[in-house]
Design a protein around this nucleic acid. Structure first.
Length: 329
DNA sequence: TAGTAGGAGAATA
DNA sequence: TATTCTCCTACTA
């Protein structure tokens, strides 16, 4: 697993998962090495540094670094619990070893490697899900090598908005995905000094996942898609159908760890949702539909068109920015 | 000021 | 042709 995750880049590779919380008592004053801070520039503020597993713990993100090779984070509750359990086990075992002074250093390393592999497996699954969602929303393939220059621009805009990066402008204009993929981190920095390294890291995640996916057949892989995931992927990667606004909103709502700050359920059973960041949701919709002039005024007008069609309505008690799917999701 | 509501015509797939 | 975009006016919180 470790080898597979390292293969994508000649320098190093990254993957990530978001973690909303972390077990109390494991917090340590944050003092990341300089190269970590550099690589993590543009991501959520880093608050703490946990040395076990060489883990960087941020406000809502856990970054795990191992031998300069892998970054990870997650915020799915179930994955978080498993990550915690895996890490807790290692912490407990590690303490016992120190007290007993009976296990060799190599044995401890093996155990840590096993735990790390468990976490990595969860991480990769999570990353794949996120990438599938992004592909569906952007209507692009998951392998950056296959992207046209238009796809590259969509991905750049998307990443820029998702991670609140400074505008990339025309730094990567007219570049195809294959051209983008052979560029070094230095070239990224030269083209886009404020966030080139961050974009390089994100592209590297996509490249890594595409590489792992291509190398592992569904029969032999322990972490590639479940049957449901496969059908979901087929649905988004091959359909090419224009997406409707109500579908787009539902997809954002299905990824609360990515878009919870912009749109969230108030009552999922009744289909009631609230747009928290109207400008951001409109921007995302504009990117998806290649309508750079999209704003909330226009998006809300489109939502109101659904009133007559019986797709979306205002809830019984009308509130600003709150809507309700007539057919609960 | 920002959001809501809806009419009307244009653009797009 | 259906859907969405765009622009508009009027109104509300």
């Amino acid at each position: 697993m470790m080898k597979m995750m390292m293969m994508s880049s000649p320098s190093r590779s990254y993957t990530y998962i978001n973690v909303s919380t972390f077990p109390p008592g494991h917090d340590m004053p944050f003092s990341p090495p300089e190269e970590h801070a550099k690589t993590l520039q543009g991501f959520p503020s880093m608050l703490q540094y946990v040395s076990h597993f060489d883990t960087l713990l941020c406000e809502d993100t856990m970054w795990i670094k191992r031998k300069n090779d892998v970054f990870m984070d997650t915020n799915r509750e179930d994955e978080v619990l498993k990550c915690r359990e895996a890490e807790q086990d290692c912490l407990i075992d590690s303490t016992a070893e120190q007290r007993a002074l009976s296990l060799s250093l190599s044995g401890q390393t093996d155990m840590e490697d096993r735990c790390l592999e468990q976490v990595q497996s969860l991480v990769l699954k999570e990353v794949q899900k996120d990438i599938m969602t992004a592909c569906k929303l952007l209507n692009i393939t998951s392998d950056p090598v296959e992207w046209s220059s238009g796809h590259v621009q969509k991905w750049l805009l998307w990443t820029e908005h998702l991670y609140r990066l400074p505008p990339v402008g025309t730094a990567f204009q007219h570049l195809s995905g294959s051209e983008l993929c052979v560029m070094s981190e230095d070239e990224f920095r030269q083209r886009c000094s404020p966030c080139g390294d961050v974009l390089f890291a994100h592209l590297d995640i996509w490249k890594t996942v595409a590489l792992v996916k291509n190398r592992c057949s569904p029969q032999t892989s322990s972490f590639i898609e479940t049957p449901d995931d496969v059908s979901a992927e087929a649905d988004w990667s091959c359909s090419g159908q224009p997406i409707h606004l109500w579908q787009f909103l539902q997809e954002l709502l299905l990824k609360p760890h990515n878009y919870g700050g912009s749109i969230r359920w108030l009552n999922k059973e009744k289909g009631v949702f609230k747009i928290e960041d109207s400008a951001h949701v409109a921007k995302l919709w504009g990117i998806r539909k290649k309508r750079p002039a999209m704003n909330y005024d226009k998006l809300s007008r489109s939502i109101r068109q659904y009133y007559k069609k019986g797709i979306i309505r205002k809830p019984d008690v009308s509130q600003r920015l709150v809507y309700q799917f007539v057919q609960p999701v």
